[in-house]
């Protein structure tokens, strides 16, 4: 191997030495970073700039140069409300319905999911029978495509679905789950928890397994109750992992789109329309295509996500430092 590598290294060495002489050792680092920076610029930074540019333009033309500059009009349209608590008082009521739906969804979904994920992780961390099997079972939905998840639950919950057939069989009678706003929203939360819980369970399980055994043994010797052990040992030592899980789940919750779009289409009415679906519909599915409004809305979401990401980075750094 060295027989091949050595001559190659010698060939590269000559221009690298020349570059180092020209730029100095510190500046040479930029040469190594350049390919990555170019890719990042092209696929991450440029789209952000384009998004910002679109948000400042109007019309329905997709070509940026053919779009009139409208300044902050799109942001003004999105934020013009007599009361932000009541979407009916907003010019763009659909945006605020989507915002509130997303906030409710994220609050419920993240709360329930993280709670259940923790419970499941604690159970799976014990020495129970068929532990490997149950770990796989809880993780399995994570492997499914969001559209598959949506279709499975749609077949179960539709008017002539499996659930109604079962309810009919036991004599309760069926219900049209997906055309009632409250039920549709509740099932959307359930579906999302079912689909993603396994991933967070796995992270929490890893966090639990990282807690040293001897701490529990010491608690046992001190005759601490299981509840006290959980409250005073498990929870504090798991909190760094919990925080990461919470922030990741929050970001993922705000980004929810595909599985809900395939599940309810955002209906009934706008009951399960979340912010990403609103952006998609304004920009790509509706007529006329309001790219400017969609870009402005997506920038606002991006700001929220950046804040959440910064919180996660801060938490990570604190954990590393602490």
């Amino acid at each position: 191997m060295l027989v091949i590598l050595n001559p190659l290294m010698r060939i590269i060495e000559i221009p690298m030495m020349a570059l180092q002489r020209l730029l100095g050792v510190n500046r040479l680092a930029w040469v190594f970073l350049l390919p990555n920076l170019l890719l990042f610029g092209l696929f991450a930074f440029l789209p952000v700039i384009l998004n910002l540019s679109y948000s400042l333009t109007g019309g329905d033309n997709v070509l940026l140069e053919a779009r009139p500059y409208v300044g902050g009009r799109n942001f003004e349209t999105l934020t013009s409300c007599s009361s932000f608590l009541d979407p009916n008082t907003c010019i763009e009521d659909k945006f605020w319905r989507a915002v509130w739906n997303t906030l409710w969804f994220v609050t419920l979904q993240v709360g329930i999911m993280v709670g259940f994920a923790l419970l499941t992780a604690i159970i799976l961390n014990r020495d129970i029978r068929a532990r490997g099997f149950f770990r796989s079972v809880f993780f399995f939905p994570v492997l499914l495509s969001p559209v598959v998840v949506a279709l499975i639950w749609k077949w179960i919950l539709q008017r002539e679905g499996v659930l109604n057939a079962f309810l009919d069989w036991i004599g309760i009678g069926g219900f049209n789950w997906l055309i009632d706003a409250e039920w549709a929203f509740a099932w959307t939360v359930f579906l999302s928890v079912w689909a993603h819980m396994g991933f967070y369970t796995l992270i929490l399980l890893a966090g639990l397994q990282a807690i040293p055994r001897d701490v529990y043994e010491a608690a046992l010797m001190d005759r601490a109750s299981p509840w006290r052990t959980f409250r005073r040992i498990t929870l504090p030592l798991l909190s760094p992992t919990m925080l990461v899980v919470l922030v990741l789940a929050l970001i993922k919750g705000v980004q929810t789109f595909d599985e809900v779009y395939a599940f309810t289409g955002g209906g009934p009415g706008t009951a399960t329309t979340f912010i990403i679906q609103y952006i998609y519909e304004e920009g790509f599915a509706g007529a006329p295509r309001l790219f400017g409004l969609a870009a402005a809305a997506s920038l606002m979401v991006a700001i929220v996500l950046v804040v959440l990401t910064l919180i996660q980075l801060w938490i990570n750094r604190r954990n590393v430092d602490g």
Partner: peptide, 12 residues
């Protein structure tokens, strides 16, 4: 039939 108009969102 409520399923048709209430069973979807947006302009689908």
């Amino acid at each position: 039939a409520r399923d048709v108009w209430a069973g979807q969102g947006g302009a689908t």
